[in-house]
């Protein structure tokens, strides 16, 4: 697991992908920070984080598209799958590597809070709430991207597919609002990641939401393992 994680991490920073992803994160979050708080004299960072939610929805797939698709294409999966390593460890190693790169970009968001604290009184609960929410959302996006990547040999297909999946995950609450049957719409909105994300941004740490995001991540990792396993039986 550690070996795979290390290899993937070094691969991120040998190719431009790691740097590009972090640069894009810094660029957008910096821009949102300036646009939503500094330029209008506001200390509410919720919109900065919300902006990043959409940026990650599109850009995390760039980070994850390579993970399994490239192995499938280069036939290096033969090395990984014939090595004495469990599939869950393999998948977790891959997930962690992408997640670490994601967090390297994400961590910068905390510094905005520090910058603000010099100018005015800030509500740290809200900042931390937003930060944790974004970190959890990132885990969901990374695991979803890893899952889609394991389905294909093409990085392009993986990227486009995971963007579509992320958008679908984020927009599930829209579907819920147009369904007339209350029971079904309740069920759908309870699995909406956006609604749960929104709860955090008001500074409320909900255990059930934390468990929810972690569960969704684990489910995607688990399906990825099953996909790898299934290929053996095909």
């Amino acid at each position: 697991m550690i070996a795979i994680m290390k290899r993937e991490l070094s691969a991120y920073f040998k190719s431009p992908i790691g740097y590009v992803f972090i640069a894009v994160t810094f660029l957008f979050s910096g821009f949102f920070f300036w646009f939503f708080t500094l330029s209008v004299g506001n200390t509410d960072v919720t919109y900065v984080f919300l902006g990043m939610f959409y940026v990650y929805m599109i850009f995390v797939p760039v980070l994850t598209m390579r993970l399994m698709a490239d192995e499938n294409k280069q036939r290096t999966d033969q090395l990984l799958l014939t090595a004495p390593v469990g599939l869950m460890r393999l998948v977790t190693g891959k997930f962690l590597s992408a997640y670490i790169v994601f967090m390297l970009g994400d961590v910068v968001m905390l510094t905005y809070g520090i910058v603000l604290s010099f100018c005015a009184e800030v509500n740290w609960a809200v900042i931390f709430g937003n930060f944790v929410a974004l970190a959890l959302i990132g885990a969901v996006f990374v695991s979803a991207g890893l899952f889609v990547s394991s389905l294909t040999e093409s990085q392009m297909v993986a990227a486009v597919g995971s963007i579509a999946l992320n958008v679908a995950l984020a927009l599930i609450n829209v579907i819920a609002s147009v369904i007339p049957v209350k029971f079904i719409s309740d069920v759908i909105s309870s699995i909406s990641i956006f609604d749960r994300y929104h709860g955090f941004t008001t500074g409320i740490f909900s255990i059930s939401s934390i468990v929810f995001f972690i569960s969704v991540t684990v489910v995607f990792l688990f399906i990825t393992v099953r996909i790898l396993e299934r290929r053996r039986w095909a």
Partner: peptide, 10 residues
């Protein structure tokens, strides 16, 4: 394997 499983970036 028939095609050696190599990572070209290493």
């Amino acid at each position: 394997p028939e095609q050696p499983p190599l990572y070209y970036d290493m």
